[in-house]
Design a protein around this nucleic acid. Structure first.
Lengths: 180, 180
DNA sequence: CTTACCATGTAAGGCGTTACATGATTCA
DNA sequence: TGAATCATGTAACGCCTTACATGGTAAG
């Protein structure tokens, strides 16, 4: 009963809100979830078939579109499985930032190189922040239309706050490096 | 020349500052580096032997202590390898927070359960923050004794700022969940 | 008509953790 | 003297990514 694979749970989580194809699940991973999770086709498709075999989801062909879509739906059993996992305590929150790792060893570099890493990090955050800010506006607008939106908003707010803090840190870090 | 394994680079990074045993390397991972990196014995010891074979580090037995210590030292070749890796652009910064994942699917839970996850997260951050604050004080004190300290301080400051932001978010999140 | 995107999947291989195995030393 | 910590390592296994393979459709 333990040993819930994360990939299964994420997929079930996405399916708990709407029917999806494997391709659409991957899209959710790369847009909405990418700020705190990731997965590739190589793990998504096998996991989907596995979920069907275990009766946690069902698969059907799409008849409406011209494409060969396979639409997955969560079952009652799948929803129970998801709910159970959701109540279990968090196993781990992991942050693996290569930027910090390289900066930590920055003494082996010159300051200009370290600066480049900070600036690249800053740029990436500056580029991604607008998407989060936009998501916040949209979610706030339709907050009472769908009870799930409140939870999405929670994670979006997390992203916005931390990203803004990252940008503040970048400024400070650049100053500290410059010798200030 | 590409395909630098991260574990090799992290170890070389640690060795670039001081000679260390595998056990001590693991300790660094679990204390100083844990805020942005991790590794287990199962990857550290094989990596160390591999580094020696490739001439990037040397191994010698400790003669002074009574313990069977194997002390590893970085070579010139190892230092060059490290420097080269450090100048390469960052490949990826990854955040995998199960807390956010579960919260994202929080609509499948009741609000009390979601709250528990936030509180557990808050508690963990509150427990870890003092270590970072303490590290900052120490690093500031000896900032001009060792040029590497500046870079350590950079990453510590990152941790402090983000952790403080996390705590702010927890407050906000709890309010939002409570229906505010 | 061709480029971009939609759509599904597999195979090989990499990477790393977990669990196991073993033993010495320090400290209370 | 027993527990905690120091200290090194291996083997099995799991999980996931990368790269490959294939083909349909929409839009310009």
């Amino acid at each position: 009963m333990a040993n819930e694979k994360k990939i299964d749970c994420v997929i079930l989580g996405l399916l708990s809100h709407e029917e999806l194809t494997g391709y659409e699940i991957k899209k959710r991973m790369d847009t909405t979830l990418k700020y705190f999770w990731s997965a590739s086709y190589g793990s998504i498709y096998p996991a989907l078939n596995d979920l069907v075999q275990r009766g946690l989801a069902t698969k059907r062909e799409d008849t409406e579109s011209k494409r060969n879509k396979l639409i997955y739906t969560i079952t009652e059993s799948g929803r129970n499985y998801l709910k159970k996992w959701l109540t279990l305590p968090i196993e781990k929150d992991e942050l693996h930032y290569e930027t910090l790792l390289k900066l930590f060893f920055g003494n082996e570099l010159d300051e200009k190189q370290a600066l480049l890493h900070i600036e690249a990090f800053e740029k990436k955050i500056e580029e991604e922040l607008p998407y989060l800010l936009n998501a916040e506006i949209i979610l706030n607008k339709y907050l009472n239309k769908d009870s799930a939106h409140k939870y999405y908003l929670l994670t979006v707010k997390f992203g916005i706050k931390t990203y803004q803090t990252y940008l503040e840190w970048c400024k400070e870090a650049k100053k500290l490096l410059a010798g200030g």
